[in-house]
């Protein structure tokens, strides 16, 4: 399975362990990822406020780079996923906008046609690889480990644009945990917001959101939170001590990336997967 791989800014900086852990899995999962070195920051649902045209051209170009390789574009950041798919929906439904974007891409030999899909790594695991094949590859089942799956927002909502999980009761990440032999806890926060996107403008409120999620996972007696999104990871891990300030909880809870729990089940070491880089270990 070959894909173009979108490099997310956060995975290039704060959560470098995501791409590192994916690197160590590629062979096991028989996935080939071609890094989109020329891809630019998606704008994190911020670029279009300053200029909707920049947002369209930059992301049209990002997808066109994958089209040039005849590959679908995969990302492991949910906000990149949503941002790219938003651009894709606009471009796929408007010939005028496609033409506008392409007028900027021509001298690079690029053209947006809509031929490449934009997917999240989680979808590649559940759909392209398949859960049964994933399960077959497990060498160190996560038996007895209780996970609180935290989906975050931009991989399930708006469903009209994403269309895999039912946002009221998402299940894809749960199924991955089960395929890896882990067990699940029921808790109310799996489809809630981590607050990441307002951390810098409304910190107190954002921390209340992440704190609610962390606290409910702890109360449900989970051993780990697992998330498919590095932004959620940052809000839940790096900000965890701050988010738990003043809350009556007995402990902290480590937060793992999707790629890391797969890595663990496939027998990779914590160090290899960069788990020791987390703030809560």
């Amino acid at each position: 399975m070959k894909f173009a791989y979108f490099l997310s800014c956060i995975n290039e900086s704060m959560t470098r362990e995501v791409d590192r852990s994916i690197e160590s899995l590629k062979k096991d999962l028989d996935i080939v990822l071609f890094k989109l070195e020329k891809g630019a920051c998606c704008g994190g649902s911020n670029l279009d406020y300053v200029s909707p045209e920049h947002f369209l051209v930059i992301n049209g170009r990002n997808i066109a780079l994958a089209e040039q390789m005849n590959l679908d574009l995969v990302t492991s950041c949910s906000t990149c996923l949503l941002t790219l798919r938003r651009a894709k929906q606009i471009l796929d439904s408007s010939p005028d906008k496609r033409q506008f974007v392409n007028s900027f891409l021509a001298n690079e030999g690029l053209s947006y046609t809509g031929s490449s899909d934009v997917k999240h790594l989680l979808w590649v695991i559940t759909e392209d690889l398949g859960l049964s094949r994933l399960a077959e590859k497990v060498t160190t089942p996560l038996t007895g480990i209780r996970f609180a799956p935290f989906y975050g927002c931009h991989i399930i909502r708006p469903s009209q644009l994403l269309g895999r999980d039912n946002p009221a009761s998402p299940s894809s990440l749960d199924l991955v945990v089960e395929a890896l032999g882990g067990s699940l806890v029921e808790y109310p926060s799996k489809n809630k917001c981590c607050g990441f996107h307002t951390l810098l403008v409304a910190e107190k409120e954002s921390l209340a959101m992440s704190g609610n999620a962390i606290e409910s996972a702890i109360r449900a007696e989970a051993d780990y939170i697992v998330t498919p999104c590095p932004l959620c990871h940052t809000a839940l891990d790096a900000y965890q001590p701050k988010a738990l300030e003043g809350r009556r909880v007995s402990r902290s809870i480590p937060v793992l990336h999707l790629s890391q729990i797969i890595g663990l089940a496939l027998g990779h070491s914590r160090e290899e997967l960069g788990i020791d880089r987390h703030m809560i270990t």
Binding site: C9, I10, E12, S13, M14, G39, A40, C41, G43, G44, N46, L47, Y49, V50, S51, H54, I58, L200, V201
Partner: peptide, 18 residues
């Protein structure tokens, strides 16, 4: 915050999170 994304994408193509 939004302006920063706009500027960074022009300057380096990456968000300068620091």
């Amino acid at each position: 915050h939004a302006q920063a994304f706009f500027d960074d994408t022009r300057n380096t193509g990456r968000l300068r999170e620091v």
